[in-house]
Design a protein around this nucleic acid. Sequence first.
DNA 1: GCAATGATTTACT
DNA 2: GTAAATCATTGCC
Length: 196
Amino acid sequence: MRILPQRYFLHDDPVSIAKDLVGKYLFLGNEVDLRGGIIVETEAYSASERGCHAYGGKRTKRNEAMFAIGGRCYVYQCYGIHFLLNIVCNKSSHADAVLIRAIEPTHGVNQMQNNRGVAVPHNQLTSGPGKLTKALGIDLNWNNQPLKKGIIWIADSGIPPGNLITTTRVGIDYAGPDALLPWRFYLESSKFVSVR
DNA sequence: GCAATGATTTACT
DNA sequence: GTAAATCATTGCC
């Protein structure tokens, strides 16, 4: 299982990275407490469209991490309750990112159940951006952290993913025409994608 | 300084 | 289907 190198995230097209990340492994923790799974749903965001927090190059305290070099995390809180995990892409000062929306839990499932608190069906443990951060134990402390083995990292299983569905992004109606961009990707065969 | 608002989830009618 | 939860960040005064 190959850990993706930083240069993987320096590509200037977050859409192709979002697409390629589906089927990869996301891991957190260490050998005694490892949590992770297969990425089954992503969305791409770019400073060139209104759905992005950094639209038009707008730099704020919240989205600062997006302007960092690719291969870091951008975590922020939404609706006061949920943390959302992004992987920053592109070179420094280019505010592109990929939102991780859902994973298929494969490692540390018991720990994830505990983190969620309530008993939920296995296929809903991480089937949404807010759910997966809670299950994995991600909060604002992860913001602007570089991907690194032993903390948080992404690896290539080498197994080709199943059929990929391309569609529009969720929850960004305010973005006007940009809300129609086909920048959401998920595995057709997976039971672990977010619902709506 | 203060009011408005989400890249959501969950529970209730 | 509708609504509440809940707060850091944002933008306007």
